[in-house]
Computed example of a mutant assay.
Amino acid sequence: MARYTGPKTKISRIFGEPILGNGKWLGKNSNPPGQHGAQRKRKTLGEYALQLREKQKAKYTYGVLEKQFRKTFEEAARLKGVTGENLIRLLEARLDNTIYRLGIAPSRPAARQLVSHKHVTVNGIVVNVPSFQLKPGDIVSLKDKSKDNTSVTSQIKGKNPKFNWIDYNEAEMKGTFIAFPERESVPENIKEQLIVELYSK
């Protein structure tokens, strides 16, 4: 399964946001990456550059490479409703993202590893595909054997209460994907309309 394995801080500095986790280098004096990042005068980004930048930000945020992201967009375009909002809903419904949202893993890459190492079940069946699309009512849990693994359970911090589209039972280490989230409930700073405009060219 392909994934981004390059420098994380560099990507965060490009966008000026801690989209790949640790944002400790994004202080007031943080500069864009590169030898001349501080001195170089940046041109105002054009329309295409802004659209491309937003797509790249979404890809890095959710840990999806180009081919898979394009397929997800095409699926979103087929669904009823606003394409951009559908895209965010599909990305949020990925199994690895839901594991992260439930607080079972501290980051999306860590959630991806949990899934690929067969620690996670969906409706009682082991699923090792991070991009697995959940449907409303699906129950996500750690395997019984994994619940006794301290290296796995020590990472659990519990669900953020503002994520109202999922429910988490702390005692059973089990979560339920209740519904696809509304766009305003998703905290990621992504302008999905720019992505739609980019793919519509």
Rank of each mutant, 00 (worst) to 15 (best):
1 M>W: 02
1 M>L: 07
2 A>L: 10
2 A>K: 12
3 R>W: 00
6 G>I: 04
7 P>S: 03
10 K>Q: 12
14 I>W: 07
16 G>C: 12
18 P>C: 05
18 P>L: 03
21 G>S: 03
23 G>A: 05
25 W>K: 12
30 S>R: 08
34 G>V: 14
47 E>G: 09
51 Q>P: 04
53 R>W: 03
58 A>K: 02
63 G>Q: 01
64 V>M: 09
65 L>F: 10
70 R>Q: 11
78 R>S: 15
78 R>E: 13
89 R>E: 13
90 L>D: 03
91 L>W: 03
91 L>S: 05
97 N>S: 11
101 R>E: 01
106 P>K: 12
107 S>N: 11
107 S>Q: 07
107 S>L: 04
112 R>H: 01
112 R>L: 13
116 S>V: 12
120 V>T: 13
124 G>C: 05
125 I>Y: 03
125 I>F: 06
126 V>I: 15
129 V>Q: 10
132 F>E: 02
135 K>E: 11
136 P>S: 01
139 I>T: 13
144 D>P: 11
148 D>Q: 15
151 S>K: 14
154 S>Y: 03
157 K>V: 06
158 G>A: 08
160 N>A: 10
163 F>S: 04
166 I>F: 01
168 Y>G: 05
168 Y>T: 02
172 E>Y: 03
173 M>K: 14
173 M>A: 07
174 K>N: 02
177 F>M: 00
182 E>N: 14
182 E>Q: 11
185 S>W: 12
194 L>N: 01
197 E>T: 04
198 L>Q: 13
199 Y>P: 04
